[in-house]
């Protein structure tokens, strides 16, 4: 029996852990990985105190921070169900079953898939959701980045010095990512933006050879010969396991300004919630708030 279980160890979960450790709560962290999406970012220039830090470096700093407090972390463990029963929260994972007085869900988001033929077959065979990880394997090759938001621009910026040519395949009329990133990217001659284009299939033999794209205005289809596909079309919340918790239309867990969900004892923080704006610094703040709210809840329960 724990006072608190934190699900996830991205910016929100890590910050909640640091606060929980300092409040000397009896708690446990269950997580698939450490660092979450932050670990996959290329360049981070808007996290206070760091004018520049890479995602993996920040993730390492996060990990060092919780290791300092000797936090109990079950890494590589995925939660499959969270529900409240008899005044307690029950948490089931593929590896075990836990009970706690409170839980903070900070499970973040994962990459949205294209859902087109060939996507599954060519995953890691030229198609990837992580430019930071796999980008360097495409040195001197022609690649396509799918998307038009900040993550697509970030992925493209990571690739400009590696790949020979980058097609940025964007379904909307124009790019929606930050202007400063757009300007930076468009300064490179090896980048070509293709607006109003939808990917309809990923093609190849052993590895990716091309993608089929359709112009959503003219309806015309064409084949783009590339050897790499970087899918950056947004994110979906990892909230399926929180069965009884109220969510919005996007599957994000609804929280109030105290990070409380509709179920007493269940709190949520960071990108998995409906908090406006998904940013590392915001997720950190939300994680801190969630922990302090759980702490207050615990003291009123005694």
């Amino acid at each position: 029996m724990y006072e608190l279980i934190i699900i996830g160890a991205g910016p929100a979960g890590i910050t909640a852990s640091v606060y929980a450790a300092r409040k000397k709560l009896e708690f446990l962290v269950i997580t698939k990985d450490i660092g979450g999406q932050a670990a996959l970012s290329g360049e981070i220039e808007n996290y206070t105190g760091y004018q520049f830090i890479s995602g993996p470096e920040l993730a390492k700093k996060f990990e060092e921070h919780i290791r300092k407090y000797g936090v109990e972390v079950r890494e590589g463990e995925e939660v499959i169900r969270v529900s409240r029963r008899d005044n307690l929260v029950e948490i089931f994972s593929y590896k075990g079953e836990y009970k706690a007085k409170t839980v903070i869900i900070a499970s973040g988001k994962r990459s949205r898939e294209l859902k087109v033929p060939g996507e599954k077959e060519f995953k890691n065979r030229g198609l990837t959701y992580c430019a930071t990880c796999d980008g360097p394997l495409f040195a001197g090759k022609e690649v396509a980045v799918i998307g038009g938001g900040n993550s697509a621009l970030d992925a493209s910026l990571q690739l400009v010095r590696i790949a020979k040519k980058i097609y940025l395949v964007n379904i909307a009329q124009e790019l929606i990512g930050d202007k400063i990133m757009q300007e930076k990217l468009l300064g490179y001659k090896n980048v070509e933006v293709l607006n109003n284009k939808k990917v309809t299939a990923v093609l190849g033999d052993k590895m990716v050879k091309s993608i089929s794209i359709k112009d959503i205005v003219s309806g015309k289809e064409e084949v783009l010969d590339i050897e790499g596909v970087f899918v950056e079309i947004g994110l979906i919340p990892n909230s399926e396991f929180a069965v009884d918790v109220e969510k919005n239309q996007f599957g994000e867990i609804k929280v109030n300004c105290h990070n409380e969900t509709n179920i007493p004892g269940i709190f949520a923080a960071g990108d998995v919630t409906d908090v406006p704006e998904k940013q590392i610094v915001i997720a950190c703040g939300e994680g801190a708030k969630a922990c302090l709210s759980a702490f207050t809840y615990l003291s009123t329960q005694k």
């Binding site: 990985d33 996959l40 290329g42 995602g55 993996p56 992580c130 930071t132 990880c133 360097p136």
Partner: peptide
């Protein structure tokens, strides 16, 4: 590995 990949580092 690649130098930037977080899972490689881990």
């Amino acid at each position: 590995s690649t130098p930037t990949c977080p899972f490689c580092i881990r």
